[in-house]
Amino acid sequence: MNYELISSKLNEKFSTNQNQLNTSTAGDPYFLINKEQLLPICQYLKENEELWFNFLKLITAVDQGDKFSSVYHLYSYKYEFGITLKVDLEKTNPVVDSLCGLYKAANWLERECYDLMGIIYKGHPDLRRILLPLDWQGYPLRKDYVAPTEYNGIDNT
């Protein structure tokens, strides 16, 4: 199992010019995929006999200055191999499909990304804040966030 095998299998099943393997930067390579194709690609990766990515490790929300990204780390226990999928979203309307139907681990991980970055996951059964209080204003991990000096009467300077 290696990146070329996965890349070739993805390219033969889905269209070729939209799923590129990015190896230009240092560190780990990642697959940059189209946000409409996220759910079918993940389903294929999970159910195909030669790939079998049955473990969703991590969902990350990244603020890259001019756009958001939702990054997924998948892992296969059978072949002991992990990959990274990255989906780019625009800042004004960050909406992407939810993976809750495939992996139950996505439930809490996506709620955390919504809570801290404000990315909306379509199809999530229960999208509300998980770490911050329910009436918190704003999304802290965005680069333009300003922390409040007072909350519910407790002055915090």
């Binding site: 911050l132 802290p140 966030y145 922390a147 409040p148 407790i154 002055d155 915090n156 300077t157």
Partner: peptide, 11 residues
């Protein structure tokens, strides 16, 4: 820390 209260003596 944006959620941390600077000392419990504020409460």
């Amino acid at each position: 820390g944006y959620q941390v209260i600077k000392g419990v003596d504020k409460i």
